[in-house]
């Protein structure tokens, strides 16, 4: 049986890359590549199993995760005049090596996370993507960078669910995807409000709640 581990590995590669860069637009390219890899995973698996629902879901994932969300976030970044998100704590090189360490540990211990009867390596790579998303969220200063970290985390959960379970009904998955997109739109609105009332999005500067 084909396990499509290359595509899960590609998603992990994209998050590793996003750990080490500060330009928001490059991060969005990484996010889009990750979404495309996960969508392609579903698409190919759907075609392999002859399941129309999974194939369609793959197309929907590519449309939302690889195109709609990155394009929307790029538009917001242009409107908010955000180019770079200088991280705090870990520098780019160290962050990438930390990410590689996480992947290695998760891969070694992938037996802990994997469901019976599935390929354990995929579970390790997916959990590593979740953890790298967490690191991105922790080490960014701007709310936009944190949002991207959250989306990486979500992609990790998504790839875990799809490589470890036989599948959730397509209707529910489509609903979750739609919810995610609405969530990103709402977060974008909140970002506009934040930057209008504080004139920046730097979380280090937000020490108290106004009004």
């Amino acid at each position: 049986m084909a396990t499509f581990q290359e595509l899960v590995g590609l998603a992990a590669m994209a998050s590793l890359w996003m750990l080490g860069i500060t330009r928001v637009r490059s991060m969005l390219w990484g996010l889009g590549a990750q979404g495309a890899a996960l969508g392609a995973l579903l698409l190919f698996r759907g075609i392999n199993n002859g399941s129309i629902g999974e194939t369609l879901l793959g197309c929907a994932v590519i449309a939302v995760k690889a195109i709609a969300i990155p394009v929307f976030l790029n538009w917001s970044a242009c409107r908010l005049h955000v180019v770079r998100d200088r991280g705090v704590g870990l520098g780019p090189g160290l962050a990438m090596l930390a990410g590689a360490l996480i992947v290695v540990l998760c891969y070694f211990k992938s037996g802990w996370f994997s469901a019976a009867g599935s390929v354990s390596g995929n579970a390790g790579l997916a959990i590593a993507t979740v953890l790298m998303g967490l690191i991105i969220m922790m080490t960014r200063r701007l709310a936009l960078g944190m949002l991207i970290g959250f989306l990486v985390l979500d992609n990790g959960i998504f790839s875990y669910a799809f490589t470890q379970t036989p599948g959730i009904p397509v209707v529910i998955e489509l609903g979750v995807l739609f919810d995610l997109f609405m969530g990103v739109l709402l977060a974008g609105m909140v970002l506009f409000r934040v930057s209008r009332s504080f004139e920046h999005m730097d979380v280090l500067e937000m020490r108290e709640l106004h009004e």
Binding site: M13, L16, W17, G20, I21, G91, P92, G93, L94, M96, L97, G99, A100, L101, V104
Partner: peptide
Amino acid sequence: SFVAFSTALAV
């Protein structure tokens, strides 16, 4: 940091 990405992938 460019090389670190390559090294991380290699590891």
